[in-house]
């Protein structure tokens, strides 16, 4: 039946097996030596990876066939092909790396008998994440490993592992790597980790509140790098405004230090940062149980804040923003200093 649609001599299983054999060979061979034979093997490997890709994504002549994809996926994860592929990736040429990345990305979504078997595989081989994350330290590999990583953390268990690992701390530095493309890729992964799986994120933030937000404030919100601050304040807003993180939000907006940092961001000359900072600032103001020191700061800065908001506008008309602003202004204007 299948051969009707894809009249090919090799089955998807054959392609996976041959790829695996070639990967084993490549994995063993020393890195530097470049004999004719190895070159040929490499070419063969490239072709096989491309073949895998075209089975999974289809090509100009045909759409992907569900059954072929399932067979491929099953065979791929039946043995340790993914580990081999990740290990050998630095030895492959650029085009094959890109193909391999796309293959790995696709496999994370393939269901075999309505199960994501990639997730099972990764749970059993979770240390692969260590390799992928460390990829951010390697300029040549960062974008490939980074893209694979982002696909893998679609699985909740994998995201949980990464969140709770020591790697999480490294992201604060990866985000600020000098290479823009790599830093931006790390930032995208960081954002995905902190927004995708709600319950996992909420649990992580509650357990790791102290160190996480200390780092977040110091390294990201108070960074000297414009783009870091801009992305960080945006993400902070996304995190705090998410319902599942309400406990974390309440805690965050009760801290005087946090308020100081956010108010500094409000004063920035960049419109984008100001605007994102406002969405965090409004949470401090809207808090029904404002601690005395928060009220104190707001009262002390009342006239400055009101003046700031008086000509605070979005580029495009934004009803929600105007409503929020009016609310904040009313709230601040009505504040009375608390306690002694």
């Amino acid at each position: 039946m299948k051969s009707l649609f894809k009249p090919k001599p090799r089955t998807p299983v054959d392609v996976v097996r041959q790829t695996r054999d070639l990967l084993i060979y490549t994995d063993r061979s020393p890195e530097t030596k470049e004999s004719k034979r190895e070159e040929k093997q490499m070419l063969e490997l490239s072709k096989n990876v491309r073949e895998l890709k075209s089975i999974l994504y289809g090509n100009s002549e045909s759409e992907p066939v569900a059954e072929a994809c399932a067979q491929l996926t099953q065979e791929f994860f039946r043995e340790n092909t993914l580990r081999l592929l990740i290990n050998c990736l630095p030895k492959l040429n650029l085009e094959t790396r890109k193909d391999a990345t796309q293959v790995v990305a696709n496999l994370q979504r393939q269901q075999v008998q309505s199960r994501l078997i990639a997730s099972d595989y990764l749970e059993a081989n979770i240390d692969l994440m260590d390799i992928l994350i460390a990829g951010y330290e390697n300029t040549d590999m960062a974008l490939h490993y980074g893209a694979m990583l982002r696909e893998c953390i679609r699985h909740q268990s994998v995201a949980k592992y990464v969140l709770e690992s020591q790697h999480m701390k490294k992201f604060f530095d990866y985000i600020q790597l000098p290479n823009f493309d790599i830093a931006a890729d790390a930032a995208a992964t960081f954002k995905e980790l902190l927004t995708r799986h709600k319950s996992t994120v909420a649990e992580f933030l509650s357990k790791n509140y102290d160190w996480f937000f200390a780092e977040y404030n110091l390294k990201l919100l108070e960074s000297t790098n414009y783009i870091t601050r801009r992305q960080a304040v945006k993400l902070l807003g996304d995190i705090l405004l998410d319902r599942s993180n309400s406990a974390v939000m309440t805690r965050y907006v009760s801290s005087r230090d946090n308020l100081r940092i956010v108010m500094n961001l409000l004063r920035e000359s960049s419109k984008s940062i100001q605007l994102e900072a406002f969405h965090v600032f409004k949470l401090f103001v809207a808090n029904q149980n404002k601690p005395a020191d928060i009220v104190g700061i707001l009262v002390t800065n009342r006239s400055k804040l009101l003046r700031l908001f008086a000509d605070f506008k979005t580029d495009k008309e934004d009803g929600q923003f105007e409503a929020d602003k009016a609310h904040v202004v009313r709230e601040i204007a009505a504040l009375e200093p608390k306690g002694p």
Binding site: E95, K98, D181, A184, D185, A188, Y226, I227, K234, S270
Partner: peptide, 23 residues
């Protein structure tokens, strides 16, 4: 100018990546 550029930041990232992976 990233502050003036209206493009979504994710777009800029994606495109920077494409740019550095094409050869």
């Amino acid at each position: 100018d990233l502050d003036r550029s209206r493009a979504d930041f994710d777009d800029i990232r994606r495109e920077a990546k494409i740019l550095s992976l094409l050869s």
